[in-house]
Amino acid sequence: MAAHHLAGALLTLLGALFLFLGALGIVRMPDLYNRMQAGTKATTLGNILTLAGLALYHPSWALKIGVIALFVLVTNPLSSHALARAAHGAGVPLTEGSVSDALAEDLSPEGGEAVES
């Protein structure tokens, strides 16, 4: 057994741990925005680590796996930003203990709540 197999498998295990933590965060967090924080970003790092580990495990595919990782790295912040903006526009409320909502304050100058859909 080659050493790069073991290193790649360990890196994959570390990435899978981050994937698992992201999925755990999506269950435990109280509202949509916090779910997005834990869910779609911990899984980005998990994705990159997992794909790097698998590329190390199978080095002749490293270039192609790198293209997949690049796509994930570029498209993921775009899609999560689009979802967050759409959810705020649709009036998904923040959780109870939230400190401030500067965007809703700026949208309605009287300091009212965000519109419910």
């Binding site: 981050f18 435990r28 967090m29 109280p30 916090n34 970003k41 911990a42 790092l45 401030s100």
Partner: peptide, 20 residues
């Protein structure tokens, strides 16, 4: 990521969210 992972696994869920 390590910071957020620590928040997720700790039982009391120490978050203090808001939009700034």
């Amino acid at each position: 990521n390590l910071d957020v992972a620590r928040r997720v696994v700790s039982p009391s869920l120490p978050i203090n969210p808001g939009i700034v």
